[in-house]
Computed example of a mutant assay.
Amino acid sequence: MQRYCDKILRPIVVSFIHCNHLMFQHDNAQAHVARICTQFLEAENVPVLSWPAYSPDMSLIEHVLDALDRRVRQRVPVPANISNFAQPLKRSGTTFHRPQSTA
């Protein structure tokens, strides 16, 4: 945890938060809520947003990962037209378009 304070918090987070007048938000991971880290943030006068532990509603990526997990578990087939997105865009004048699939 000391390494987290020395390598991440002090050189990156603290200066960025103070320069931009921001509030620090973390996800209550063990490294974030360890006593040494919370004491360090208090000593550096870093405002920390308090929020309940394991609160996925505050993190958008948690919703995305949950939806992806449900889709994978249900083994929902990928739509047939999704292969068009793997093809590079072609330029036509000032606009871009996807080439028509030959299948």
Rank of each mutant, 00 (worst) to 15 (best):
I8F: 13
F24L: 12
I82K: 05
N84R: 09
R73A: 06
H26A: 04
I61Q: 07
H63I: 07
A43Y: 04
L49V: 14
R71M: 09
I17W: 03
L9A: 04
I8V: 15
I12V: 13
K90Y: 09
C37F: 05
R10I: 01
V48L: 07
A53L: 08
V76A: 04
P77F: 04
T94Y: 11
T95I: 12
P52S: 06
A34D: 02
D27R: 12
S92H: 13
N20A: 11
F16E: 11
Q25H: 14
D57I: 02
H21Y: 05
V76I: 11
C19T: 14
V14Y: 03
S50Q: 15
A34P: 02
S50N: 15
V72S: 04
R3P: 00
F40V: 01
A53N: 12
P56W: 14
Q74C: 03
Q39W: 06
N84Y: 05
V72R: 08
I12E: 07
E62T: 05
S92T: 10
F96V: 08
V64Y: 14
F85Q: 02
P52H: 08
H97T: 09
I17H: 01
P56K: 12
Y4H: 11
I82R: 08
W51N: 05
A103H: 14
M23H: 15
A80I: 09
D6S: 10
H26Y: 08
K90Q: 10
F40M: 04
I17G: 00
V14F: 02
V72P: 00
S50V: 09
L9K: 02
F85S: 01
R35I: 11
K90D: 01
P77R: 05
P52D: 05
N84W: 02
T94K: 13
H63W: 07
V46E: 01
V14T: 10
F40R: 01
T95E: 08
R73Y: 06
V46Q: 01
V33E: 02
R35Y: 11
F85C: 01
H32D: 07
L9Y: 07
L22H: 13
N20R: 15
R70N: 11
A53V: 11
N28G: 09
Q30M: 06
L41E: 00
R10D: 01
A53H: 13
S101L: 08
C37A: 15
V14M: 03
I61M: 10
M23W: 15
W51F: 07
V78C: 09
C37V: 15
S92R: 12
S83C: 07
G93Q: 13
L22K: 14
I61F: 07
R71I: 10
D6T: 08
D6G: 00
R91Y: 09
T38Q: 06
I12F: 13
L60I: 11
V76N: 03
N81E: 15
F85V: 00
Q74H: 10
